[in-house]
Design a protein around this nucleic acid. Structure first.
Lengths: 339, 339
DNA sequence: CTGAAAGCGCTTACAG
DNA sequence: CTGAAAGCGCTTACAG
């Protein structure tokens, strides 16, 4: 790259000190009480040379990088992509830049990412935490790093977090299926101890028992690493049972998409034979032969809240943790129509 | 944030100079020829204090940030999300970090992003350029900034670029429709002068004329800002003509998804009444009642190539531009089956 | 009213 | 064989 122009170059051309140029270009003239015409001259030279401040030098001095780190599970997944996008936009409004990294739901990668981001002196972190990353989060607290969890949190660790009421959303969705006449409702969720998924499972189970229905054999778990096989097995079991399932609730959009692929392959008619509801939104749900009923997460508000809370922590290191819970919406479409 | 430990802290505790600590921790002992046991002691203290180098200070000194900037149209679009993900992974393998920004196909935002990234001293840029951003790209050349264009390029500007043969891919796809017996093939593309889309349109038109078919009234354009309305109008015109279209070719996945929504609404049967082919991949294509035939872009290879070429430019500022063209694949499925 | 000087946390050429 | 010193490009408290 060509040598960039620095304050020194401007100072030389103007015949003043570097300090004075800095004062003028950061609009602190009153402090330096520099003469009007000199200020004008300096600005003119800066423009002529197309001066661009070196953000890194500024950071080293100020101790702030005006950068926030974002850790998602996988930036190529549209859900996380949307989260990243809203955070990017919101950060930019506040003159912050975002560095994103994908953890792949892997705690080693997550730990590495946290270190890389911290070494790059991000001013704070927004994290979608991975299973097993409690120690990493605790370490962030110990080191007094400003951070916010989003989408998920650990109930045993008091941190700032932005989330939804997974239990209620799930309970609602399943209750809706029951009201539409379904009696054998299966759920496919990830095999994980993460609290948000556990809450979705709890919402499912309690909605069934609240309505006098059994849950026996109806909750199926898929491993993140073996989605395809596990979902096929689960659907085979649910549909091949003596009393086959008449509704299916997916705990995330990736589970639903994989499940719907198999449902198409099996030629199962939705909603006649099987009602379907999924957590999360997806364009794919619109193109399925029966547009899929889904739980919409308020991604925009979540992203905005995450940036807001994080900036508050950055500005005030003593600020107590703030837990934000945002409402979801059940978008009812044909896939869960009454029988 | 808690004060981080610096080389100075370690030097003090070890009773040596900061310089020596730096030599040891960057494994340049042979240069400093420091004693074995002192080196051991220093490392031990560094571990004990959990020393993490300040990347910003290092950058200021070295003039390298080990960061690359990536500009995509919209990180929440899965196509760009995948591109970003492959670049993130590939960059990490080379110890680079990525800062991503979304331009929204808007040249002002693109220009702002370039400035922000350059002020943050990225070592180079990977850019999916926006319509009208030629001047920005020329400026990057003038300033001798290492960069690579990906997905798109400007034929009038000799730059490094990673792309596909849009003309050939398009020609292939349309020829496939013709072979499957279609006679009135419509295309919906973006209204833009961007070369990659123009090439897709050209491939379409020439495939038709090469086979003795007319193109009259069959190419429809949608504005990026009015996708939904423009696609509806286009499909209404194509299907309402005296001789209605019997096939539809979409120039991108977002156009296809919007178009398929309307096709579902109209109750059009695919492929019986209308064959469909789209550029790009999408999970949504799998869930449509006739899985959609599509042109697969080799995103993984494109991302890898982009990082490779960019790093070559970063390492050698004099390296001539390199244009990489990667093959696409037509994935044939039921949406374009013979009538 | 103005500018020189110190310092942010590193790296490395150089002097001893 | 070892360490002090300069310098990357800024900002700002301080001395005059």
């Amino acid at each position: 790259m060509k040598k960039k122009v620095s304050l020194k170059d401007i100072a030389q051309e103007a015949g003043v000190s570097v300090a004075l140029v800095s004062y003028v270009l950061t609009n602190k003239e009153e402090k330096a009480r520099v003469g009007q015409e000199m200020a004008k001259k300096i600005r003119k030279i800066a423009r002529k040379l197309n001066y661009q401040p070196n953000h890194i030098a500024r950071s080293l001095k100020s101790g702030r990088s005006d950068t926030i780190g974002l850790i998602v599970a996988d930036i190529s997944n549209p859900f996380f992509g949307h989260v990243a996008r809203t955070i990017e936009d919101e950060a930019k409004k506040n003159n912050y830049t975002v560095i994103v990294g994908s953890s792949d739901e892997n705690m080693d990668k997550s730990g590495d990412l946290i270190n890389v981001l911290l070494n790059r002196q991000v001013d704070g972190l927004i994290v979608i935490p991975t299973e097993g990353s409690e120690a990493q989060i605790r370490q962030l607290q110990d080191r007094n790093v400003p951070f916010v969890l989003i989408d998920r949190f650990f109930p045993d660790i008091a941190t700032s977090s932005i989330s939804i009421d997974n239990y209620a959303a799930s309970h609602d969705a399943v209750s809706h299926l029951i009201r539409s006449g379904r009696k054998r409702i299966g759920m496919i969720a990830y095999k994980t101890n993460m609290h948000h998924i556990a809450e979705r499972r709890r919402g499912f189970s309690e909605a069934l028992t609240d309505n006098g229905l059994t849950t026996a054999g109806l909750l199926k778990l898929a491993r993140y690493s073996h989605i395809k096989e596990d979902i096929r097995t689960a659907i085979d079991q649910l549909m091949g049972a003596k009393k086959p399932a008449d509704a299916l609730f997916f705990a995330t959009n990736s589970l639903a998409i994989e499940g719907l692929r198999y449902i198409i392959e099996l030629g199962i008619k939705v909603p006649e034979q099987l009602a379907v509801v999924s957590f999360d939104e997806s364009e794919a749900f619109d193109l399925f032969h029966a547009p899929v009923t889904f739980i919409r997460q308020p991604i925009l508000e979540m992203g905005k809240a995450a940036v807001r809370v994080l900036l508050e922590h950055i500005r005030d290191g003593e600020r107590p943790a703030e837990e934000v819970c945002i409402d979801t919406e059940l978008v009812i479409r044909r896939s869960s129509a009454a029988q």
